[in-house]
C-alpha cells in the first residue's frame, strides 16, 4: 500500500528541505563560487562577482603558501596516520586480552579526548608545550633530555601539533579496533592453537586478516579527518612560526574569512574535496587487492 503524499511530505519534507538548502545546494554552489572572483565587494553586492573560469585554480597552483599548507597537511597525515593506527591497534589488543583487569576504567580514559572540546584542550596543550614551565619538557627532563622550543621553532612546531593530533585520535580509534576485535570468532583462535600457533602467529594470521574491514574503515576515516586539520594549528600556533604549521583548512579559513576572498577560498575547498575523494577511493581500491 502506498503512503499518501500528505504524510510523506510531513515526515520527509522538513529534513529534505533543510538538507537541500544547507548541504546539497552548497555543494554545487561551492564549485560555482570557485570559478568566480567573489570577494569583499561582492559580499555587499553579489552582482560584483565575475566568472573568471579556472583562474583561481591557476593562481592556487602558483601560490607558494598553498603548497606549503598542502605539504604541511600531508606531513601531518603521513606521521599521524601510521602512529595512531599502530598505537591504537596495540592498545586494543591489550584491552581485548582475557586477563586484563579494569577494562571499563581504561576504556573511559581512552574515550576522554574524543568527547573533549578541541579548542579548550588545545589551550592546555599549548601550555604543556611551554619550553620552560610545560609538562612535556619536564617529562623529557626526567630522562635527561633538554626539550626544544616546541611551538616557536619551525622545525618542531608541526611535530608538536602531530603529538596533539595523535593524542586526540588515539583513544577513539582504539575503541573502534576493540569493537572489531570482539567480532572475531573465538573458534578461529582455538583452531590456530591446535595447529600450534604462538601468540605472534595468531596475531599475524588470524587477528590481522579478520580485522581488515575495521582497519580499512579506521584508516579511511583517519585520512578524511587528518586532511581537515584545522583547530589544532589554529589554537596552538595560528599556522606559524613561519607558516610551518599552516594547514589546508587553516589557509582556506584565512583566505575566506580574514581576507574575504570567498571565490579563492572556494577553490581551496574544491581541491580539498577532490583530494579527500581520491585518497578515499585509492584506500578502498588498495584494500580490495
Amino acid at each position: 500500500m502506498k503512503t499518501s503524499k500528505f504524510w510523506v511530505f510531513v515526515f520527509v519534507g522538513p529534513s529534505l528541505f533543510l538538507l537541500l538548502i544547507f548541504s546539497i545546494v552548497p555543494i554545487f554552489a561551492s564549485f560555482l563560487l570557485s570559478l568566480t572572483n567573489f570577494n569583499v565587494y561582492a559580499l555587499v553586492d553579489w552582482s560584483r562577482a565575475r566568472f573568471i573560469g579556472l583562474e583561481n585554480f591557476r593562481d592556487l597552483f602558483h601560490d607558494e603558501l598553498f603548497w606549503k599548507a598542502f605539504l604541511n597537511t600531508f606531513y601531518c597525515l603521513s606521521i599521524a596516520l601510521p602512529v595512531t593506527t599502530v598505537l591504537a591497534l596495540l592498545n586494543a589488543v591489550l584491552l581485548n586480552r582475557k586477563d586484563t583487569r579494569m577494562k571499563n576504567l581504561f576504556k573511559v580514559c581512552f574515550f576522554l579526548p574524543f568527547v573533549t572540546n578541541t579548542v579548550a584542550i588545545a589551550i592546555v596543550w599549548s601550555w604543556i608545550f611551554n619550553p620552560r614551565y610545560g609538562l612535556m619538557n619536564w617529562v623529557l627532563g626526567l630522562f635527561g633530555i633538554r626539550g626544544p622550543q616546541w611551538l616557536s621553532d619551525p622545525k618542531w612546531a608541526m611535530l608538536a601539533i602531530i603529538v596533539f593530533v595523535v593524542w586526540r585520535g588515539l583513544g577513539y580509534n582504539t575503541l573502534l579496533f576493540l569493537a572489531g576485535l570482539q567480532n572475531i570468532p573465538q573458534e578461529l583462535y582455538e583452531a590456530a592453537e591446535l595447529d600450534g600457533a604462538n601468540a605472534w602467529q595468531k596475531f599475524l594470521y588470524v587477528t590481522l586478516p579478520m580485522l581488515r574491514p575495521t582497519t580499512v574503515f579506521v584508516t579511511t576515516m583517519m585520512i578524511i579527518g587528518y586532511l581537515q586539520l584545522f583547530e589544532e594549528p589554529y589554537m596552538l600556533t595560528q599556522g606559524g612560526p613561519m607558516n610551518a604549521t599552516l594547514s589546508i583548512v587553516l589557509y582556506l579559513y584565512r583566505q575566506g574569512f580574514k581576507f574575504f576572498k570567498l571565490g579563492y577560498a572556494s577553490s581551496i575547498a574544491v581541491v580539498l574535496f577532490l583530494l579527500i575523494i581520491s585518497l578515499t577511493v585509492l584506500r578502498l581500491k588498495l584494500s580490495r587487492e
Partner: peptide, 23 residues
C-alpha cells in the same frame, strides 16, 4: 532520495562552509 541523503554524509563540512555562510 535516501541515496541522495546518504551522499551528503561524505561531503566534508569545509566544502559547504562558504556557500552556507553566504546563504
Amino acid at each position: 532520495i535516501f541515496l541522495l541523503v546518504l551522499a551528503t554524509i561524505m561531503v566534508p563540512g569545509q566544502m559547504t562552509l562558504i556557500p552556507v555562510f553566504l546563504i
